[in-house]
Nucleic acid binder design. Sequence first.
RNA 1: GGCGGCGUACCCAAGUGGCAAGGGAGAGGUCUGCAAAACCUUUAUCCAGCGGUUCGAAUCCGCUCGCCGCCUCCA
Length: 486
Amino acid sequence: MRIYNTLTGKKEEFVPINPGKVGMYVCGITAYDVCHLGHARSAIVFDAIKRYFRYRGFEVKHVRNITDIDDKIIARAQKENVTTEDIAKKYTDEYSIDMARLGVSKADVEPKATEYIAGMIDVINGLIAKGYAYSANGDVYFRVSRFSEYGKLSKRTLDEMMAGARVEVDEKKENPMDFALWKASKPGEPWWESPWGKGRPGWHIECTAMSTKHLGESFDIHGGGADLIFPHHENEIAQTEAFTGKPFVKYWLHNGFITVDKEKMSKSLGNFFTIKEILDKYDPEIVRYFLLSTHYRSPIEFSDAQLKEAEAAIDRYYTTVLRIEDAIQNTEHRAQSTEQKITEDFGKLISTLKEKFMDAMNDDFNTALALGHIFELIRETNKFLDSKPSGDKAKTLLANVKEALKEVGGVLNIFNRTPDEWYRSLMKIRNIGLSEQDILNKIAQRQEARQKKDWALADNVRKELDALGIILEDKKDSTRWKVRIS
RNA sequence: GGCGGCGUACCCAAGUGGCAAGGGAGAGGUCUGCAAAACCUUUAUCCAGCGGUUCGAAUCCGCUCGCCGCCUCCA
């Protein structure tokens, strides 16, 4: 497996620190507001990465933190006149709901910053003892000039950072680039007792305390959005390596942004869509597919048109599954079968899918390419179905292809429902004012008309349903309904 | 100002040295009572532009243009 490492700026062969095991820490959220699609991207991308590692037999320990104490949480709590715990709890719960709806698996450990204050204080004490940090009026700062490798992740030097500096000069800091490990609490703010007085942790220190606690002082993968490279991850490296004297993380992975009109989707620009808003209009599988159809490091432009395309692609998959199922049912048991050559070729294609899928994923988790391979096989499957396959051999192959598609789709956590479930979900989201039974009644009515060759009546039923977004597909001796994709 | 990234068909998108995946949209066809789905053909002699390296480049190097990101909280 080759993985792009932000630290080295290159794709590198993945060699875990402990053979067969992967320690993985991904920055979660600060619980001060509902999540938008950008948060979904990070979560989904790293969820797919984790699933792929497991698929390949690695034992993965995944840690995803929740920041439940921070300036923004305090500000929000004050504004709403509630406690910071209330705010953090509310948005942590919202986050969990969003993630569950998106099909993002839970991390093995989901630590909250406030539960690790003691550990953070230990680290800060250690840093002060080693001369990497200093206290000033109840604050504690990391002395960046002491850490010679500061800037190695974000690829810039202290001098360069100072040059373009938009940093506020703070009297208490020795150097404007020094960052807070501990902040003295102001009146009315939550606080914890510490050697430096009542205060609360700075943002970066929690990740050091929690990641090393659960994954050890050195671990394999640390991920997050590209906007965390600086200062967050840079600072994590500085404080952790200064403290432990060991390399912190072997592979740093960062996902690209979601853009709207080419601009980064962000809170401050106000050009964001919340996960809830999106899921009101689109099935979660569509969102996952959309986010995985572009390589995780590239920017991805958000638009309705894009989501509709994703919807069409998924529908193509489920439509093919329907065809496969119909064919399996209608294929009679017979040793004698379709042309040898056709079945042989098709059998080969099925067996290469997993290989191609893994090749794609092995190359820095190229989910877009992997999806391409899946759709190539879908086309070939449809072609095979068009050849009107018959016999036991063909039947087996069709069962195999269905299984293979499901297996690789499962790694990305897509294509994991039945076509019926897919259409029911679409029907629900679109608020089509019909029950499934209503539709079946209409189909029966139309079927009767068709038997009498009353084409006008039959077509009217079709039109009626079409107006509601339901389309009918006539098979040999049955009719199936689907939700129209457009 | 510093650092980094991107620019592939009508749209999305993979491809980082050897004849340009995949999806959507369009056109024509096969199939169908009509449809839909599916399949077939078709849409980039070419990968922002210019120059260079090479037997050979979308892929490497240089320059130009355009877009974006980080340098402040940010997935």
